[in-house]
C-alpha cells in the first residue's frame, strides 16, 4: 500500500495542474480548460503524456478476466453448505420402505409454496419472506391496509401447519406467522 507516496498533482507553468488535466481527459466537462488548451503548449504536452499513460489502464479494463476452472461449482457448494447449516434441521419422514430425509431448504421451499397457495384466497396479504430461525420457520407477511390481519393470521398459521403436517408428518417444523409490514391501499381502492 502506498499511502505515503506524494501524488503528482504538479503545477504547470501556466498555473493549471496535472489533476485537472487528468479529470478532463477522463470526464471532459470543462469548457474553460478546453479553451485554454487551444493556446497552452504546457497543458497540451501534459495532456498528451497523460493520454499515453492512461491508455494502458483503458486496455487493462478491456482485457477479459477468466474465472478459475470450477469456481461456480465450488461457490454453489459453499452456499448450499452454508444454507443447510443455517436452515434448521433435516426432516425425517417414516415411510413403508424406510426413512426419507428432507433437506432443510426443501422444507422452506415447500412452506413458501404452501403459503403462496393459501394466500391466493386472501389478496390483502402477501408473502414477504420465509426464513428459518433455529427449529422454527418464520413466515413474514405484508398486509394491505386495512386488512383484518389480527383475525387472519391465526387461521393462516393453522392452515400452513396443517399443510406441512400433511406433507411432512409429525416431523413438520413449528411455524410462526408475523405481520412484518403494512402497505397503503392501492389508489383506486382508496378512492372507492
Amino acid at each position: 500500500m502506498n499511502v505515503e507516496t506524494p501524488v503528482s498533482d504538479r503545477p504547470l507553468p501556466c498555473g493549471h495542474r496535472t489533476g485537472e488535466l487528468l479529470d478532463y481527459h477522463l470526464d471532459g466537462e470543462n469548457t474553460a480548460l478546453e479553451q485554454h488548451l487551444a493556446t497552452c503548449p504546457h497543458c497540451r504536452a501534459e495532456l498528451a503524456e497523460i493520454a499515453e499513460r492512461w491508455g494502458a489502464v483503458r486496455r487493462a479494463a478491456e482485457t477479459p478476466v477468466r474465472a478459475p476452472e470450477g469456481l461456480l461449482e465450488r461457490t454453489l457448494a459453499v452456499l448450499r453448505e452454508s444454507r443447510d447449516h443455517e436452515t434448521g434441521e433435516w426432516v425425517e419422514l417414516q415411510q413403508e420402505r424406510g426413512r426419507l430425509y428432507i433437506r432443510p431448504t426443501a422444507t422452506v421451499s415447500l412452506t413458501r409454496g404452501l403459503v403462496r397457495r393459501i394466500l391466493r384466497e386472501t389478496p390483502e396479504l402477501a408473502l414477504l419472506s420465509c426464513v428459518p430461525e433455529g427449529r422454527v420457520l418464520r413466515v413474514d407477511l405484508v398486509a394491505t391496509y386495512p386488512a383484518a390481519a389480527g383475525r387472519l393470521l391465526p387461521e393462516l398459521r393453522q392452515r400452513i401447519e396443517a399443510g406441512l403436517v400433511e406433507h411432512l408428518g409429525v416431523s413438520a417444523p413449528e411455524i410462526t406467522v408475523r405481520l412484518a409490514d403494512v402497505a397503503p391501499p392501492a389508489r383506486n381502492e382508496h378512492e372507492r
Binding site: 507516496t5 506524494p6 501524488v7 503528482s8 496535472t18
Partner: peptide, 8 residues
C-alpha cells in the same frame, strides 16, 4: 486517479 498516474 492521480495516485495511479504516479504509480504508473
Amino acid at each position: 486517479r492521480l495516485a495511479l498516474l504516479t504509480e504508473l
